[in-house]
Every structure is written in C-alpha cells, then in structure tokens.
C-alpha cells in the first residue's frame, strides 16, 4: 500500500483510471487522479485522522454523507487517501474491487432525471461486473463546506 503524489492531469483524450470500491453494499468509483494512497487499518495507525509523511488526511464519513449503512470494519476494509487541489481527506471503504482503465466515452452521464444535489456528488457511472459503479466527485467528497464532512470524528 503506497503513498504517492496525485497524478498529472491527463489530456482529454487519454483514458482515465478508476479505483472501484464498495461502501454500504454499493459500487463506487474514484478517479485515481485524486487518490494519494491506499492503507489498511493497521497502516493507517488505527487513527481517526491518518497522518502520512507529516500530512493529515482528515477522516470523512462518506457513508453518512451518502446516507449509506456504515459497514463494520472487516479484514478487507481500506482507507483511501484523497487529495484535490489544496483539499485532503480520507475515506473508509468496505472493499477494494480493483482498478479500471476507461476511455472517457465509457463513463456514462448520470441520467437527467436525477435532478437533486446528487448531480454534484457523482461525476457519472461505469458499467462494472453486472452492476453499476457511481463515480464520486472527489471535490464534493473533500469539500469543507459539505453538509457533513466530519461526522462526530468517526469514520
């Protein structure tokens, strides 16, 4: 499980890579551009806010923000370190399913019938296995002004 700087921004035509994870029984996708690292609980030091190389990645309760069930931590639980512009944070996910490299056309837009704030939560959808993974908007996840960025200091 490594720590790295965010990737260079690719050209518009180049494929994007997505980390597919599960949370609350749903598939979610994270653009690897915003991923700084992937840790086990032990590697994260079992801390609320992981501190890596002197940089703190404040814990964000993504399950609460998406109104998903808070899965109990299991052996496959991972901490994903995120960074976007000047914002940093970490989310706990139930499992990591793998990495997908996709062309922009393979990221489908969220149907227009979804007309609430969720249009800002998701950047699109990816066909994954026999299901669908929703691509999270890392800016929204990390946004300090979000309605519930931190949920009582818990994951």
């Amino acid at each position: 499980m490594g720590i790295r700087e965010p990737m260079e921004t690719p050209s518009p035509a180049s494929p994007s890579r997505f980390l597919i994870v599960t949370l609350g029984g749903r598939y979610l996708a994270l653009d690897t551009e915003s991923i700084c690292g992937l840790l086990t609980f032990e590697e994260a030091g079992n801390d609320e806010d992981p501190m890596i190389h002197g940089i703190m990645y404040g814990a964000i309760n993504l399950a609460d923000r998406l109104s998903l069930p808070n899965d109990r931590g299991g052996a496959n639980t991972r901490i994903v370190l995120l960074s976007k512009r000047e914002m940093r944070g970490s989310i706990r996910v139930t499992t990591v399913e793998g990495l997908l490299e996709l062309s922009p056309s393979q990221v489908l837009p969220l149907p227009m019938q979804f007309c609430g704030p969720e249009r800002h939560w998701y950047q699109g959808m990816i066909l994954f296995a026999k299901s669908i993974a929703l691509v999270l908007n890392a800016t929204w996840v990390l946004n300090e002004e979000g309605p519930a960025k931190r949920a009582g200091g818990t994951w």
């Binding site: 749903r26 998406l66 109104s67 998903l68 489908l108 149907p111 019938q113 979804f114 007309c115 609430g116 704030p117 969720e118 939560w121 998701y122 959808m125 066909l127 026999k130 299901s131 669908i132 929703l134």
Partner: peptide, 18 residues
C-alpha cells in the same frame, strides 16, 4: 442510488443500457 430526487431512487441495467 443515494440521492435526494424524490422517488428517483435507483438504476436498472439492461445489458449496456442503464
């Protein structure tokens, strides 16, 4: 799909169509 649009609650996949 976690969201706030009333009664638009999810997605169905029909082959390559969502």
């Amino acid at each position: 799909v976690a969201g706030r649009t009333p009664f638009v609650t999810g997605l169905v996949r029909q082959g390559q169509t969502v």
